[in-house]
Write a protein that binds this DNA or RNA. Sequence first.
DNA 1: CACTATTTGTCCGTATGTATG
DNA 2: TCATACATACGGACAAATAGT
Lengths: 255, 255
Amino acid sequence: MAEAPSPTPLYHRIYSVLRERVVNGYYPPGVPMPSEAELAESFAVSRITTRKAMEMLRSEALVIRSRGRGTFVKEKLNTSISRPVVSDVTGLLNYLNAIGRSTRLKVISLDRGEAPPRICAQMQVSPQVELVRAVRVRELDGAPYSLSTSYLLPEIGGAFRKQDLASTAMIDLVQKAGASVEQVEQVLTATLADETAALHLSVPVGAPLMRVNRLFFNAGMVPFYAAEILYRADLYEYRLTLKRDASKEFLLDQS
Amino acid sequence: MAEAPSPTPLYHRIYSVLRERVVNGYYPPGVPMPSEAELAESFAVSRITTRKAMEMLRSEALVIRSRGRGTFVKEKLNTSISRPVVSDVTGLLNYLNAIGRSTRLKVISLDRGEAPPRICAQMQVSPQVELVRAVRVRELDGAPYSLSTSYLLPEIGGAFRKQDLASTAMIDLVQKAGASVEQVEQVLTATLADETAALHLSVPVGAPLMRVNRLFFNAGMVPFYAAEILYRADLYEYRLTLKRDASKEFLLDQS
DNA sequence: CACTATTTGTCCGTATGTATG
DNA sequence: TCATACATACGGACAAATAGT
């Protein structure tokens, strides 16, 4: 009866808890899970609510229910719901080619104009300077997983065409345009899908996204290329391995 | 229009997005926010839905609404534009000490028991092995910004006491317990606050969080410590700088 | 002073979803 | 399974306050 102030419906929260227990092995196979009535008792809800949660587990084929016997977790849980897209220092494209996945790059727009103030500040240009802006969506096996907005100095990106952007990685394009990449600064954080991100990434509004801001410096330590990339959290994770020496300083940040 | 696969009601997801924009300064004070009708248009929902989301913002005293004028964000909350907590290879605690911020570590629980299978698999132990589990909340100037759950091998964490955890960084504790840190694997992604995370981190349900999973290996490359940490996205960002040589491979992952 | 457009505020009716007993 | 209550979401309509012409 402890009605928490949660917007998500009760049956779905209970379903989430039960699903977590099932896939984590909390309920061992072979012995029946608690009955609907018992769960209703322990969650302090009505039986229909626990029933709906259990039915969702059955529709997912995570449990087997039979009248008079009870509910049992499936023996062979093929729940390798792993996140397929992984960024790593070894390079995403290498990884994807290695496992034979197909990526596609869709160019949403390519234009030039004034950039938002945050980008201008990062690139150390005045807000009146026109930058080249490219918006693209990356797909993996037909499912969009990233939406990127790139801002480039005109002398670098001025000659880019849409077909270039659709076929060639940005890093190759800027180097072909004469820029050398000396250093890259990255900032990673989490955000929510707004309406445009939801549209391009095929997720509901409010879905979790990972936001990566990258700033590229040339040999003179002049920033020439800034990118903001939104990744679907359900299709993307960022892996990072630190060896001993390099991690010495880093390890102070343990909580 | 992509609104099917989410159990949380539409108005609450839109509220989360708008709230995020308000506290991040996306809507500048002084000029009215988009009207209910405009938001309904851009989110492709009915006006009642956006209206409910806006009303939630008003009930939180984040905005001021008046008929005929529009909706304005409160002037005085413009203090939280900067994201103070930053993780970096140079070390968070060094950074915080340098700028004179005060952190506090609150121990929620410290117990031992069987860990979820995912953790057991990471740590390469059988599911029956009892691990030491510590749940802690980190605060910066009184505001909680991270919720961490740590699992340790008993020979490492068996002697830890609550006061140790409240006063000493975990990395120092494990090294004092005889473990050497040879390598750390990290996985970063985004997620949404559930009820427990929302409670401990003082954010509304559905707020964006950054999730970091860390796995620590000793000199024999045996994992002895796994941690899952949830960070408030509005108070935390992860910075990473790549120099030229190290970034060569990485740069293939540009979209 | 209208007059108009905009925007919030309030109401209707309808349909579906959620949760209880 | 049923009846009931409440929440969600839609479409439409109109009133009231505000700002600009």
